[in-house]
Design a binder for these strands. Structure first.
Lengths: 165, 165
DNA sequence: CCGATCTGGTTGATGTGTCAACCGGGTCGG
DNA sequence: CCGACCCGGTTGACACATCAACCAGATCGG
């Protein structure tokens, strides 16, 4: 309807861009996830964990670090590590009593090394190359700004908690 | 490692942009979804369905049309409509024998009208305004291209199916 | 020393998504 | 007319994510 700041509404162009973005997001995610699953039996979540572990010098990290890296809820992490452990991709090791570390297994490393090249090739083909360098850079920057804006917003009325008293 | 087209690998800039995108995607989605859920008791999925129904002239659509609009799997649609029906947001109506239509209820319409303005305002604040008009347009275009590229790829080796016999 | 609170982590219940199998009516080739 | 299959839709089993509750060690005020 109106144009500038008046109502909250998006004008047609804005709406169109937003919906295009939503569609890309879904299409890309579905495509990538299905590829990983069908060809290699890994979910996107599995992949995310394995990437992080395999990039660590030691092949082991605390669950907490993984949480920071992936931005997952701690309970999601715990549940998923349990499932991955059951499948032999990962191992929980209680090194210093509490705070167990999680280590990638040989099997886990084999799995990710098997799928990483094809996965990267797909990112290139369907995302990097389609955007091209300029738009890709612009997107990266804008993405960082969006994340920053949201974090700023959330830290400004969430952490105080209900300190209304 | 290598740079141009050789291996499938992404160079540092590309990797950085990709990861920024992934982080934005997750941050934005989480933020929007939580807002809807906490303030209005609607999931992102609920919202998507209700938007589509409320935009239809008649307030009713075939499940199939909803599927096209949302790009959901048919089983997901069926399950979710069942859940929404149970909550009174939506109603399945068998008009002409088979192929029942789904209609938005008064309650459903009230729900979406209640949350739409704030939802739109958030999209504006955290996405549209942060990108700004030029980058937003560029993203919209690139998104369409990505979707097109993926669809092209999928229609070129999927529909034939296992017609090997 | 004792309790309060914080923090990293686990657990169980529940809601949601996905896959594969199935159903019922059309349509088409024989 | 009959079977094959195509298609929109449903179902059930299972994988997964989220939430709230809980646990154990640490830290700190009294």
């Amino acid at each position: 309807m109106g144009s500038v700041g008046k109502g909250p509404w998006l004008d047609d162009d804005e709406q169109k861009a937003w919906r295009s973005y939503l569609l890309m997001r879904k299409t890309l995610e579905t495509h990538m996830e299905r590829h990983l699953q069908r060809e290699f039996g890994l979910s996107g979540s599995d992949f995310e964990i394995l990437v992080n572990l395999s990039e660590a010098e030691t092949g082991r990290m605390r669950a907490f670090e993984l949480g920071q890296a992936t931005q997952w809820e701690k309970s999601r992490m715990s549940h998923h590590l349990t499932r991955m452990e059951k499948r032999g991709l990962v191992r929980r090791e209680s090194c210093d009593s509490r705070y167990p570390e999680v280590a990638i297994t040989a099997e886990g490393r084999a799995a990710i090394e098997a799928c990483a090249p094809e996965h990267a090739a797909r990112i290139r083909k369907f995302f990097v190359d389609v955007f091209g360098p300029e738009r890709l850079t612009a997107l990266g920057e804008a993405s960082d700004e969006v994340v920053h804006t949201i974090r700023q917003h959330e830290s400004s009325d969430c952490p105080p908690e209900v300190r209304g008293a």
